[in-house]
């Protein structure tokens, strides 16, 4: 049996494609693009939350937030590790990000202005991410799927800590309640945008679904997220900023309003509130670290030379 035939058979049988297998170049390119984007998102995602570690209001919240931001670094690392099995190094992917040739999730181009934003990110952004990632554990590429399983396991606390912050604020002082509502107002729509364009607009989806890289469609995942989140907002006594939101008994789902797609595309194209700051931070950190990375290689080479001398 030739490679292509075997590849089709593996996909059809819902088995995992593994690094040694023949795969169409398009499959490889799509995976590199998606896994790298996912990895970059994790790493850039450290910034908006990292913005509050030094100001976290209690020792417990500081530890939780630091552990969570650390997880984002770890998850980026697992994903880069999976991408490397496709024959591209992490250094190369980081270079493509820094040159603006690969992207990260637009959600991280919004600023974290108050402590409540840390709650809202955990609850909504991680909630949306988990919805997507649970689906991705079934993706057809073995290393990507295994990274997703590891990540989902670790992230189970991320959403819960965020919701817990929101619960404390929602039953706190008037200022705290206002802070929580403001954070929901600002993060609700960007969270829905995380699922991407409508299925009808999404050029990549068909091929990705056929290859089983992406097992569930954007719109289905978005609906799943809205259905799960509305009762959570109600429990907090907060109002979701969407006048069109209502239960549709016939469909068994919530109906919700249309996303502002102009804003969506504006942010994707680099004109969101924080695009430039996020990239500047990332590139500066990388450049500041250059002498350290080089020194480590130089030291290792000297040690090796000394041993063989």
């Amino acid at each position: 049996m030739d490679g292509e035939e075997r590849f089709r058979e593996i996909i059809a049988a819902d088995e995992k494609v593994e690094p040694g297998d023949w795969m169409p170049e398009g499959y490889r390119q799509t995976l590199i693009r998606q896994i790298a984007q996912h990895a970059h998102s994790e790493v850039i995602g450290m910034q908006p939350e990292g913005n509050w570690i030094t100001r976290a209001p209690t020792l417990k919240r500081k530890a939780i937030l630091m552990a969570k931001v650390q997880d984002e670094a770890g998850h980026g690392l697992y994903l880069y590790s999976a991408a490397e099995t496709l024959g591209v190094s992490r250094d190369e992917l980081v270079r493509l990000l820094h040159e603006g040739r690969q992207k990260y999730s637009s959600i991280f181009n919004y600023p974290t202005l108050t402590w409540a934003d840390i709650g809202a990110i955990g609850w909504l952004v991680d909630g949306a991410a988990i919805t997507n990632q649970v689906a991705l554990t079934r993706t057809s590429y073995g290393p990507y799927s295994r990274a997703m399983v590891r990540i989902c396991k670790e992230e189970s606390f991320h959403q819960r800590q965020g919701y817990e912050i929101m619960m404390v604020l929602a039953r706190g002082s008037e200022e705290q309640r206002a802070m929580a509502q403001d954070a929901l107002d600002r993060f609700w729509w960007p969270s829905l945008m995380m699922f991407g364009p409508h299925d009808s607009e999404s050029t990549h989806s068909d091929q990705s679904m056929e290859w089983k890289i992406k097992p569930v469609s954007n719109d289905d995942l978005r609906q799943q997220f809205v259905d799960a989140t509305v009762p959570q907002a109600e429990y907090l006594g907060l109002t979701i900023p969407d006048p069109d939101l209502r239960w549709n008994a016939e469909r068994g789902h919530y109906d919700f309003g249309e996303i502002d797609w102009d804003e969506f595309w504006r942010v994707v194209k680099g004109h969101g509130p924080m695009n430039r700051e996020r990239m500047a931070h990332k590139i500066e950190a990388w450049e500041r670290g250059a002498w350290v990375r080089e020194a480590a290689v130089a030291h290792a080479a000297k040690r090796t030379a000394a041993r063989s001398a």
């Binding site: 990292g50 030094t54 630091m66 770890g74 980026g76 950190a285 350290v292 990375r293």
Partner: peptide, 17 residues
């Protein structure tokens, strides 16, 4: 904590955290 997301490599960000 101030240094998180500024380390020279991803692994070192994890170590410092």
């Amino acid at each position: 904590a101030e240094y998180i997301s500024w380390a020279p490599e991803l692994e070192e960000d994890l170590a410092i955290a």
